[in-house]
Design a protein around this nucleic acid. Sequence first.
DNA 1: TATTTCTTGACAAAACTAGTCAAGAATTAT
DNA 2: ATAATTCTTGACTAGTTTTGTCAAGAAATA
Lengths: 155, 155
Amino acid sequence: MKLTTKGRYAVLALTEIALSEDKNLIKISEIAKSQNISSTYLEQILSNLKRNGFVKAVRGPNGGYKLALKAEDIIMSDVIELIEGKIETKGCSQKHISCTGISGKCLNHDLWDELGKQINLFLSHISLKDILEGNILGRSRAPILPQDCDNMTIN
Amino acid sequence: MKLTTKGRYAVLALTEIALSEDKNLIKISEIAKSQNISSTYLEQILSNLKRNGFVKAVRGPNGGYKLALKAEDIIMSDVIELIEGKIETKGCSQKHISCTGISGKCLNHDLWDELGKQINLFLSHISLKDILEGNILGRSRAPILPQDCDNMTIN
DNA sequence: TATTTCTTGACAAAACTAGTCAAGAATTAT
DNA sequence: ATAATTCTTGACTAGTTTTGTCAAGAAATA
């Protein structure tokens, strides 16, 4: 599990691209200047977003980037997974051996699995449109209490 | 935001220590062997947990570690924050300058702030006791929908 | 045809992770 | 007291990852 500048720059760039939709195209250099990011570093990130269908590029004079999808269809969990890789955590250090501690059972996998699920669940409910509209604050939620679990199906 | 082996080893070690509570003390070498972790590396982690009041150490023959708190009072958000540092993410790359993009407003801070909040909220509801009892799976929750936010107070 | 802009891949400094190692301090058993 | 055991602390290090830079090239347009 990690979140580096690369993931943040990706969202930042998408936001800037979306905000320029009226002008149709925005250049890497414009995003880089506006956000104080190295433009050569941004190239890598945008190139990746392009290869995976989030944005489209136009070369040549007056070229630049635009969104390839509608803002509401650009989901943060997809973007972050593309740029940062899958959010996954192993609960114990066993690599090939089956994972059993003194207890005879690894009690830790569940924690990290569920945390990963929680992060993904959160990000999968947030689109670029939500960001543009400032619809983010106050959305996090406490987990379900154990006593509540009994009568529930697990997703 | 990050989660490394150090954080996972910490939880793993706490679990092993808790499971040995009947024997009262467990040695670093026992945990290391049982979980296939370098014992010299574990030393650093347990030393840190000790300095911060999560476990107690007894030196000398038949020495070892035990919990300094009840399992239900060892909260995962505290443990992870101690070992990994604060879960915090900056939404943009501006360092000293006030954070304004083309939009005149940074639309990204909210996303990372809220994600950090979500992670902390999740981990703050999970104690070592929950882990020992296997009470973790199925606890993650979808975020609150934007339209639901209007009538709610933000925590 | 020249200029602009994206494209790709190689390269590299700095920071971080995941350890190792060694000297020492405290405790207990003998 | 002494030896053995166990934790304590801090310095050190190899390897990986992050965060970039750089250069050569391809596509589009004026």
